[in-house]
């Protein structure tokens, strides 16, 4: 039986499980790349004057959608950086796939909302209104994604269940 004091290779232990560190690493990559795309787009649009004098409204909408999750990811990564040795914590691959899919959908939805603004509205005031309207479907999805990621990034469960 594997214990926390005797690290095992989680992949060899259970083909349906995956190491938590690997999961965190992959999710972090997804979130940083996806967020970078969104930030680069909005930064460029802000500098180019796409949103005229409503730039602050766009950032007020954008930052709460990304920053809480990014902050949590960075915090956990920083905490893990001080630990020595490989962690033996594993998670079900099924749940990892669900969390990854939800994250990808969430980031894709944010990018989609930003990209669709000029396709539906020419007036900036209408675009800002659409951003606020999009909170109706982005908000619930954000809650689900945050729950999934919170479990994964705070999980301490080992293969032995201790």
């Amino acid at each position: 039986m594997a214990t926390a004091s005797q690290p095992v290779n989680p992949r060899s232990a259970d083909p349906q499980s995956i190491a938590l560190e690997t999961v965190q690493y992959r999710l972090a990559i997804l979130w940083f790349v996806g967020s970078a795309l969104v930030f680069v787009l909005v930064i460029y649009q802000s500098l180019a004057g796409v949103y005229a004098d409503r730039v602050q409204d766009v950032w007020k909408w954008l930052l709460p959608t990304l920053m809480p999750t990014l902050t949590m990811i960075v915090t956990v990564a920083a905490a893990n950086a001080f630990k020595s040795g490989a962690s033996a914590i594993i998670v079900r691959k099924t749940f990892y796939r669900i969390a990854f899919g939800l994250s990808a959908c969430y980031l894709g939805l944010i990018l989609f909302v930003l990209l669709s603004l000029p396709a539906f509205h020419r007036m900036v005031s209408d675009q800002i209104e659409s951003l606020h309207t999009s909170n109706l479907w982005i908000g619930p999805l954000q809650g689900i994604v945050a729950s999934a990621l919170g479990v994964l990034f705070a999980s301490k469960k080992t293969p032995s269940g201790e």
Binding site: Q45, A119, R122
Partner: peptide
């Protein structure tokens, strides 16, 4: 008389990355 959304892809790209007054 109103500023309508772009109907062509190039106009959309232009509106996405630049200010688009009428």
């Amino acid at each position: 008389a109103q500023l309508l959304p772009p109907s062509r892809f190039l106009d959309y790209i232009h509106a996405l990355f630049t200010a688009a007054p009428g």
